[in-house]
Design a protein around this nucleic acid. Structure first.
Lengths: 210, 210
DNA sequence: GTCTATAGGTAGATAGAC
DNA sequence: GTCTATCTACCTATAGAC
């Protein structure tokens, strides 16, 4: 009986934390850290403001919890780059997975972009180091492909920056992407066309083969 | 005599407005719109806070003045794309000019990026329309090159998004670029290497020529 | 665990003397 | 045109009853 009651409380805690984080992603991504009001996060999550402070001791704590969580989530999207795969397949899958992920998690993506643009004030050293190491591993794989003659010699680090930039753009800078495409909103098919263009350009370039 | 005095006042006005806008770019780009304090802009420009309000009636007015101005400035960087030039030369020049511009105006670039990420709240309709038209003209040129067999068939709009994304990234997301390149700060030579990688990939792709 | 009320501090904007 | 003092509003965070 005591057992059940405690479980019940634990479930409520878990649920409320989730509600707060979800609302936080929404508000932080639209207003930025300083523009965000705890009152709005409270409202969005259906809790009184004081309850938000019961679960998180400060605005910063909510924010950093969100940032730390989304960095973890990215590791999945980056898995296609392994030494066993062929470069063309690996990059195709990478670009598709990354675009699909940012499309489905546009708010998180924007929140992170804003955090970086404003100097990565709240990005934990540990998380940055993790990202650096993931990049290092991918660079090694690409350098291996180049050494094996499977790819043209290229700077792998700049190559990954290019792919990251191109795939993030559609969600992070959606108003610009909409303007450039002359659409009022981006749909799944626009992301599909984006993937095609990025992949085709990346693999073959734009000059005629002649 | 009255003439000289008025000119003198006009010069002072011009100078102070400039000082405020310059300080504004610095602070807004680091802290975002809501994170920025007028007191800090005043301090940076060497004026008392009340004087800032003498020249601009609100925080928003300073901010929108900055945004409107930097959109104009970009037109120059985009000039290399004209129908008379060859695609390879045009893109080479475009990428170089754009990277050079963002490197030299990193703060403005970040300010604009932050504005877009947070929904382009303060971007004037007129300015957006101007940007759309510039894109349209460039798309026409590229489509012409494709029709003339000077380029592989590609979606020109997505192609420009890709170039814009890749060239903005180094200044806008400098902390990420530094991490990816394993450098503590970006120098001119890093932008040079970026230009090479982007141009080479764009023109020829990464697959071996067989 | 939940919630009302409020303390405490800060920042945008203005009044008004010089 | 310049600047000090201040008004007003709002927001983070907490106290303390239930």
């Amino acid at each position: 009986m005591a057992r059940t009651a405690r479980d019940q409380e634990e479930r409520i805690r878990e649920r409320n934390r989730r509600l707060i984080l979800k609302a936080g992603i929404d508000v932080f991504s639209r207003k930025g850290f300083d523009g965000t009001r705890i009152a709005e996060i409270a409202e969005k999550s259906g809790l009184p403001k004081a309850n938000v402070y019961y679960y998180f001791s400060s605005k910063e704590e909510i924010y950093t919890a969100i940032v730390a969580h989304l960095i973890e989530s990215w590791d999945d999207a980056l898995k296609p780059i392994t030494a066993e795969s062929e470069p063309a397949d690996a990059f195709r899958n990478y670009v598709r997975a990354k675009l699909e992920y940012t499309r489905r998690n546009a708010a998180e993506s924007r929140l992170f972009a804003s955090e970086i643009i404003h100097g990565a004030r709240f990005l934990k050293k540990k998380d940055r180091e993790h990202m650096r190491q993931v990049t290092d591993r991918h660079v090694e794989v690409v350098d291996g492909w180049i050494a094996a003659g499977k790819m043209m010699p290229t700077d792998a680090r700049h190559l990954f920056i290019m792919l990251w930039a191109a795939t993030q753009f559609y969600s992070d800078f959606e108003p610009l992407a909409c303007d450039a495409l002359r659409k009022s909103r981006l749909k799944a098919e626009d992301y599909e066309k984006a993937a095609e263009t990025v992949i085709e350009t990346l693999l073959c370039g734009i000059l005629p083969k002649a």
